[in-house]
Structure formats: structure tokens, C-alpha cells
Amino acid sequence: MAAGGDHGSPDSYRSPLASRYASPEMCFVFSDRYKFRTWRQLWLWLAEAEQTLGLPITDEQIQEMKSNLENIDFKMAAEEEKRLRHDVMAHVHTFGHCCPKAAGIIHLGATSCYVGDNTDLIILRNALDLLLPKLARVISRLADFAKERASLPTLGFTHFQPAQLTTVGKRCCLWIQDLCMDLQNLKRVRDDLRFRGVKGTTGTQASFLQLFEGDDHKVEQLDKMVTEKAGFKRAFIITGQTYTRKVDIEVLSVLASLGASVHKICTDIRLLANLKEMEEPFEKQQIGSSAMPYKRNPMRSERCCSLARHLMTLVMDPLQTASVQWFERTLDDSANRRICLAEAFLTADTILNTLQNISEGLVVYPKVIERRIRQELPFMATENIIMAMVKAGGSRQDCHEKIRVLSQQAASVVKQEGGDNDLIERIQVDAYFSPIHSQLDHLLDPSSFTGRASQQVQRFLEEEVYPLLKPYESVMKVKAELCL
């Protein structure tokens, strides 16, 4: 049975990233139509530049190519590739079939990587351009969430054990800070992308030097003109047959890092959902379990974690691919890159769409948070109580021993009897502590235990987050809708 299948058929496997999760716009960027249309555009740009620099290419040939950029006979191309065992030459023939007058000058002087690699770089750039505003929107939604809850005390956790208090907004800023680093890295790697350009079979530009009869300047002009037509500021000066596969490492490393950030955020949300302090959106008709109707599973956060793990592992592909590119190139890269580049971007696209949807509907339960604080705060307040007693004339050592005994009794009630923490009640009825009984409410005010959390939130948002989001103001209103 021949390899390949009808990918629109229910009898043929289709990647869930495309069929179930990723956005239509990201799927289109990695589609065959987008790819092969870009090949034709690159052939047109090459012909236009070659004509401008004096090669015998007519206006009629150029116009014929322009008129057929979208006229792609995919069936013919597939048949040609089956016959020739070469995808680029299959599309040269297919393009030439609908451009008979231009057929002889299509791909003039070029090698397969002229269309293959340059198209990949265009796709990487455009895919990054799709991700950047999506990530900015996630940051914006979380920034709104953090600002609104900047002063809401909550129990902090280290080692997932109760620690000092923080605020809900401050905790959210930990998430935002990681995503801001990801946004900066995505922008950097996007701006650092260079075009492969017009380089020939081993990167020496020998074929173009021959076409222009040894004119170095025209060869350099050709490279520059096509690079500018493709919208790049610069091209690699040095290439082998391909652009260095280190570029793929750079791009997928940034995406993998984004995956790590999203995994951490969504894990926190899942843990908070278990504590009943916070939940992701839950639709009115949504079913959490087929057997347990009360369940409210954090399905979206779980999906993000599941896909983020996949995204983090994909960076190993370009690392290994770059390491086995012998001399000017081997074909070890080809099949692998067809999979890992598309999957990385479709996965990143999915987790950003999902995280935006989550961040637009996060639900906080202040009463649950308050109750958990009441359970733990008495123990945390013991040092403040000791200091207040010393100020009232008591002995630190005597007070410490009193607190120690009462704390152990209260802990026994919590752990052995399943009761509430009654340390404060014990202190309130103990005559030894009568000098500070009137101060206990103040000493137990949760806001006095959150330090500068709310001020940190305000400063972080104003100095770091809002300036970073400013270039994306025009796209901030787009909502994230999930079908599944």
C-alpha cells in the first residue's frame, strides 16, 4: 500500500493539533497551500530580480507567473513527485505547466533550498508574528487579574506546605514575570531571523556568478533584492546548502521555554482548584465526569500541561538535527523538520489560546482563602504575639514557653481530632496574655502579614508589564474561544 493518505478522510490519521486544537490561522501558515504558494512567490521574486539585473526574462513571463501564483494543481504535483521522487522539481514542473512561456526560467540558477529553506524562514517569521500578540493578550488578562487582587491576602506555599502570606495578585505576578520573559525572547528570536537568500547549491553562489558572467556586484544585488522582497532586513552571508540548523534550535528553545512557563502556571491553577481557592472557567453544560456528576475538573489547565510537556520535548529534535548536518548538509534534517517545526508552533498556539481562555474567566473564592488563612495564621502570628507581650512588660522566655504549650495543644486538636485551630481562643482565655487581649485582632490582621506584596504588584505592572504590552494595544480586544 502506498504511503500517505487522504487526510480529510475519517479513515486516515490526522494530527489532533490540526484537527482538534490549533487555530485556523496557525494551521494555514503550515498548510501545503501556504507552503507551495510561497515557493511560487519566491520563484517570481527571483525572476523579477534577475530581470532587473539584466537576464533575458520578459515582462510577459513575469506576468504569467504572477497570474498563476494561486493556480496550484495539487493532484498534478503529487503525481509528479511520485514520478520524480523530488518535491521541488515536482512543483517546478507543475508551475511550468500553467506558465508555459515562463517554464524555462522558473528556478533559474537556484537549488531546492532556495524555495525550501527560504519558505521555512518566512513561515517561522509569520508563525512567530501570530504567537506574539496571543502571548501579549494572556499577559494582559493576567495583569488585569493581578491588579484587581493585588491586596487580597492568601496563604503562600513553599514545598506545598503553608508559608508566609502573600497576595493573590502577587502570586499571579510570578506567572506574568515568566511570560514577559517569554514574550521578550519570542520577539528577540523573531527579529534575529535572517533570510537564507540566493546562495546556490553549497552556499557559494557559483551558479549565479556564472549567470551574471562573473559580476560579483550583481550577485550581491540579486541576494539583497530577493531578501528585501521577502520582507527581511538581512540575509546570511555564510550558508551551506541550507541555512544553519542552529536557527531551528533557537526558535524551538524559546517555544519550549514558553511551554515550561505555561505548565507551571496551569499546575498552580490545578492545585488551587483542589484547594477550592480558584477555578478555571466551567461552562453551564460542561460535564466533569461521566460517573461523578459533582466533579469540576480543571480540564483546560490539564490540557495545557499535557501539550506543554510535548512542546518542551520537541527542542531535542533540532538539537540532534543540527549535530548531524555533515559538511554542507545531509538530508537527516528533512523529514524531522517537516514534523517538529509545525508541531512546535501548533502546540504553542494551542496552549496560548487555551491559557487566554482560562485567564479571561478565572474565578476566585475569597471566603475559602480566608478560612485557610484562619487555619494557619495563628501559628504564624506567634512571633508577633511574643513581641507584643514583651512590649507590655512580659518575659520573652516565659511567653515563648506559654505559646509553645498552647500551640501544641491547638495542633493536637487540628491533627488528632480534625478540629479547627483554636490557638487564639486559648490565648484569649489565658490570664497571662490579658495585657494584649485587646491587640489580638490587630495582630491577626492578614494584611499585616503580606509585606509589600501589593506595592510590588503595582510597581511591576507599571514599570515592566504595561510598557512591554504597549506595541500590542491594537490587538488586545480579541477574545479566545474554545470549541473543545
Rank of each mutant, 00 (worst) to 15 (best):
A235L: 12
R141S: 12
E462S: 12
F379P: 08
I351R: 01
V390Q: 15
Q221W: 13
P471Q: 15
L121F: 04
V429F: 14
V364F: 01
I287R: 02
F379M: 13
N71M: 05
L255A: 07
W39G: 07
E50W: 12
R20K: 11
R37C: 09
F95H: 03
A110Y: 00
G231V: 04
A260E: 14
L193K: 04
E280A: 06
H217W: 15
S257Y: 06
T347R: 01
F95L: 10
W43A: 01
V92A: 11
Q161F: 04
A47N: 03
Q325M: 08
Q241H: 00
W326H: 15
E277R: 05
T158S: 10
P56Y: 03
L352Q: 01
E50G: 07
N126F: 11
D332M: 01
P293S: 06
C483W: 13
T313V: 06
F212A: 07
V115A: 04
S9R: 12
L132Q: 08
L272E: 13
V138N: 08
M225F: 06
T321E: 01
K66Q: 14
M387I: 10
F282A: 01
M316Y: 04
Q61K: 08
Q416V: 11
I385G: 05
I123R: 08
A150H: 12
R303Q: 12
V405C: 07
T354E: 09
P133A: 15
W39V: 08
T239L: 04
E383V: 02
L484K: 12
S359P: 14
Q205P: 02
G116D: 14
K246F: 02
L362D: 00
K284R: 10
Y34A: 12
K229G: 01
K233Q: 05
F157E: 04
Q61Y: 12
L469V: 13
I62H: 04
G259I: 01
P56A: 05
S438G: 10
L255M: 11
R452L: 09
I424Y: 14
F74N: 14
I269G: 01
Q409F: 02
Q63L: 08
P318W: 09
G8I: 10
N336P: 03
G214A: 14
K199G: 11
T450C: 09
E401G: 12
L155F: 07
K295Q: 02
Q416D: 10
A322P: 02
D73Q: 02
R404D: 00
M26L: 11
I339L: 10
G200L: 03
E81C: 01
V254M: 04
L461M: 09
R234D: 13
F195Q: 00
K367V: 03
F379Y: 04
A22M: 12
N384M: 06
G419N: 14
P56R: 11
T350C: 11
V92H: 01
A256S: 14
P10I: 14
T111P: 04
S290Y: 04
L482Q: 13
I427P: 08
F460D: 11
Q458V: 12
R234M: 15
I436S: 06
L461S: 03
F449T: 05
R83W: 09
K35E: 09
A308F: 03
L42Y: 10
D59K: 08
K276V: 03
M389S: 09
F232K: 00
V254P: 10
Q455R: 12
N274Q: 13
M76Q: 11
L44E: 04
Q325I: 10
T321H: 01
S301Q: 03
L272M: 05
F379S: 04
D59A: 07
V315D: 04
T267P: 01
